[in-house]
Amino acid sequence: MVNTFEGLIMMIQNTRIFNPEKEFKDKRIAVIGAADSAFEKENGNFIDGFDYVIRVNKAPHSLTEDKYNFIGSRTDILFHSFFELTEGGGGVIDWSLYQQQGIKYVVNPNHDLKGLKAHLNYYKRHLNPNKTYLLPWNFYKEVKKNFGVWVPTVGFSALYSAVSSGCKEVYVTGFTFFKTPYANDYRDDLKDVQKNSDFLKKQGFHNPDLELQEFIKQADKQQRKGTQIIMDNALRSIVKNHKRLNNEQ
């Protein structure tokens, strides 16, 4: 009971709102996911040249020097579920590691009852005064408005936040909507695509096909408004194939 009260006070004192529409205005954003497609080309210098580099969940734990040539060395913003599970969660929130990597914002995108509960439980567990962030409630409402019973993954929320922010340019790599394996050292126990698909179905929270559909819809909409969206080869191929199949139906 004491931890609950202290955790709540600490959460109120240290939680801020991260507004992508303000923070990303006129900026160039790189969003790096956990799929193996991020390692198709040595794009490290290209990625590090963006105004903001976003990564997701466990990414800081597997961002080692031997990978810099492919996926860059910077992380400015980490989107994290605040579920510190090793299986199906975001992994341990390690502030010393984040400080070492220069991470400026640790954002919990899930600004709903479940997300706020996860946020509170984090502060109850650690009683740590580090600043954390939530997406604006209205912005997160837009993120999930077409999901029905499904919960957007943290990766999708990171993508949506960048693409829909009205920024100048977004580069996306390492996102294949679970159609290819994870990159090495991220979730090696779930690198098999079928095994990971079965795991997601067993969880019953996420719908990768719906996320792909919503990403394409938002990307097309924002490109018409002037945001340049650059996708890696794997994602570009997945999007092209999805559109082709959709037109055939």
Rank of each mutant, 00 (worst) to 15 (best):
residue 156 F to W: 00
residue 105 Y to P: 00
residue 202 K to L: 14
residue 233 N to T: 07
residue 201 K to R: 15
residue 224 R to E: 13
residue 34 A to C: 14
residue 213 Q to H: 15
residue 206 H to C: 13
residue 60 P to T: 09
residue 72 G to I: 14
residue 213 Q to C: 14
residue 244 R to S: 13
residue 103 I to R: 04
residue 42 E to I: 04
residue 8 L to K: 02
residue 180 T to P: 00
residue 208 P to Y: 11
residue 237 S to I: 03
residue 147 F to D: 08
residue 163 V to W: 05
residue 206 H to G: 13
residue 63 L to E: 07
residue 156 F to R: 03
residue 198 D to F: 04
residue 104 K to G: 00
residue 79 F to Y: 15
residue 25 K to M: 08
residue 114 K to Q: 09
residue 207 N to T: 05
residue 79 F to S: 10
residue 76 D to V: 05
residue 173 T to G: 01
residue 170 V to Y: 04
residue 162 A to L: 03
residue 50 F to R: 07
residue 144 K to H: 00
residue 240 K to V: 06
residue 66 D to P: 09
residue 152 P to H: 03
residue 6 E to K: 15
residue 130 N to Q: 11
residue 122 Y to F: 14
residue 23 E to C: 01
residue 102 G to E: 10
residue 117 K to F: 03
residue 176 T to M: 08
residue 64 T to Q: 12
residue 11 M to G: 00
residue 180 T to M: 13
residue 208 P to Q: 13
residue 39 F to D: 01
residue 153 T to H: 05
residue 25 K to C: 04
residue 56 V to I: 15
residue 147 F to L: 13
residue 22 K to S: 09
residue 127 L to G: 00
residue 6 E to S: 10
residue 190 L to Y: 11
residue 161 S to F: 03
residue 185 D to C: 00
residue 30 A to V: 04
residue 96 S to A: 11
residue 134 L to M: 13
residue 210 L to I: 11
residue 102 G to W: 06
residue 65 E to Y: 14
residue 205 F to S: 09
residue 112 D to P: 01
residue 21 E to T: 03
residue 165 S to H: 02
residue 142 E to Q: 15
residue 169 E to Y: 10
residue 51 D to A: 07
residue 162 A to D: 05
residue 188 D to G: 07
residue 140 Y to K: 09
residue 199 F to G: 07
residue 163 V to A: 05
residue 170 V to D: 08
residue 187 R to H: 09
residue 154 V to C: 14
residue 176 T to V: 02
residue 210 L to K: 13
